[in-house]
Design a protein around this nucleic acid. Sequence first.
DNA 1: CAAGATACATACTGGTCGGTATGCTCCATG
DNA 2: CATGGAGCATACCGACCAGTATGTATCTTG
Lengths: 198, 198
Amino acid sequence: MLADADATRRSLLEAAYEEIHRFGFQAASLNAILERTGVTKGALYHHFSSKLQLGYAVLDEHIAGELQRLWFEPLHQPGHPIDTLMEAIMHMGEHYQCEEITLGCPLNNLAQEMSAIDDGFRQRIDSIYKHWQESIETLLTRGQQEGSVSTTIDPADTAFFILASLEGCMSMAKNAQSHDELMRCGKALLSYLNSLRA
Amino acid sequence: MLADADATRRSLLEAAYEEIHRFGFQAASLNAILERTGVTKGALYHHFSSKLQLGYAVLDEHIAGELQRLWFEPLHQPGHPIDTLMEAIMHMGEHYQCEEITLGCPLNNLAQEMSAIDDGFRQRIDSIYKHWQESIETLLTRGQQEGSVSTTIDPADTAFFILASLEGCMSMAKNAQSHDELMRCGKALLSYLNSLRA
DNA sequence: CAAGATACATACTGGTCGGTATGCTCCATG
DNA sequence: CATGGAGCATACCGACCAGTATGTATCTTG
């Protein structure tokens, strides 16, 4: 039954994602994931050759996919680039509510924890960040060509900074465990974005 | 011999700091710390009642102390607030060289890893961040009073955003494992700071 | 000089971890 | 209808972990 096998795999990925999001990759317990899903260890190691490969799969499939839905797709809408950016950011702010905010950005969490000690994680995360940054850069460059974004800024540097600020805001909000702090940070970020208009 | 006892304690704190900085708190191995220092387990548990208490001590004494030297003291110099800020940031950028950059900001690392799962860590980190943010806020407020900083910005919100951006930049640079990326992010941050002048 | 406290050292424990060896059932295919 | 592989299930392994129990010098203090 191929369908059931896929369901098992997806169930493992989902549970692993949550476990990793909550405790980090290294502290994530395979036994806890198994207990949560009702899947046995034999099944897990049938689908993934190691804990590391499971972690990579969570990153490649679950996290990258969610980012696609939450960020890249909304960014491709037409309109004023700065407005589009602000909407995407506010949309993300609304998505990360309540409990989830205290767990932080899944991508940033993994970057912090794993990039220094495992190059497989690092490269995967780096390529996602690059993709993310370029999506902002493209938007800013388009804005400059259309005359809606100030030409005094460097699109690549600015895109990198916007992304860094975004992650920084979520990181601070995570530690403060407060949605207010996220909004506060977001407010300043939006104000900065406004200053980029032509 | 009280002097030797203090030396042992300091040696443990230093080694624990490095181990935690490299692997994170949870993955930090007490045995590795002991091996590195040549101290025995009996001695460690004489000075610290648990791994958690050792972690708190690293945060309270080592990390907070380093931040004091690297940040709070340079910030108390007179002069144009924005210039002071920029110098302090560039000074930090120079300090985090080579290998250290790939390990990230020790405070941010701990915040990301521990704030969601241990309130003792969270509260300690939160108070340090608050202190940090207030030191920037005070500077900005002084600048507004002196007429050197734009009065259209909210000092508290802006200070929070600057701090978040700073941490975000270091986080991105850590993952990219590149000092260039840190400088790139710093450039955009400095440009933002310049826009805050009156 | 006796006694208690300080500052360790050594050996060990129970528990959890990621990973593996083996065997089973089902099902598509020749 | 035999057979081999897919998709598991169960039991187990050695390594490592934080933490502890116990013993022992040394040093301070009455």
